[in-house]
Amino acid sequence: MKIRIKFTKSGPLKFVGHLDVMRYFQKAFRRAELDVEYSQGFSPHQLMSFAAPLGVGLTSDGEYLDVSMNTCDAPEIMIPRINAVMSEYIRVVGFKVLPDNSKNAMSIVAGADYLVSVKDGYDFMDKSVFEQKFTDFYNQENIIITKKTKKSENDVNIKSMIYHISFDREKFQENMGTPLTARIKDSVADTYANETKVYIRLAAGSVNNLKPELVMEAFCRYAGAEFEKFAYQVHRLEIYADLGDGINRKLIPLEHADSFAKVY
């Protein structure tokens, strides 16, 4: 059966890269003695896939992986059992059995929420000035950035890939119609004394993918400030699937997007 696991990543483990996190979970599942399904053949491996790789340096409240298991118990039993053998900086917060016909997480990713905080020592503008300028930046009709590939440079309008911004988590979730969970206080995101931060919802996945770092770079250019790449702590809050009708977006957190059938 397919299981979707939601986990957080924080603290010093933000320096552990995606491939190592995959290896980490394989070993953690073995320590927890989960009845994971293995591939056939001489070097069997666990049938596991991740929704969206998290870059080195980023923290998260909402990472997802799908894993196939032969048997399992209820989430109330499984979550503590896995967490008992986990690092304190990578914790399982969700465990859900999916219907057999569910698509895997990676294929349905459509959006993600981020909290971008200015690190202390890098606060280049006042919190209120930042918020005003960021709002102006977001309200532009077009936001053009230059995407560099190995071969060429392309101008891309990212305006349509920024779904929403806010400077307050509660408002952010309210405006988006996302249920307000208790998770705000449970967030593993680091906090900074300067309190300059922005919540943003961006397109993610294989069709359109926008990195928050690119948004900050574009903002700095707009605000006439120099872009310092170490100035921001990016924290992923949630990853979404689009359960909309193809015209209107309806972003649902991956843990609730279990049976993914488009309704037209």
Binding site: S10, P12, L13, K27, G57, V85, K119, F230, Q233
Partner: peptide, 26 residues
């Protein structure tokens, strides 16, 4: 969390920063 000896700037500049942050299982 105990503060790391190296800053984010240093850790994000060098190869394999996980070599220096400890906190391994066990």
């Amino acid at each position: 969390m105990k503060k790391l000896a190296l800053s984010d700037e240093i850790l994000l500049t060098i190869e394999k920063p996980a070599r220096y942050v400890g906190n391994e299982i066990n």
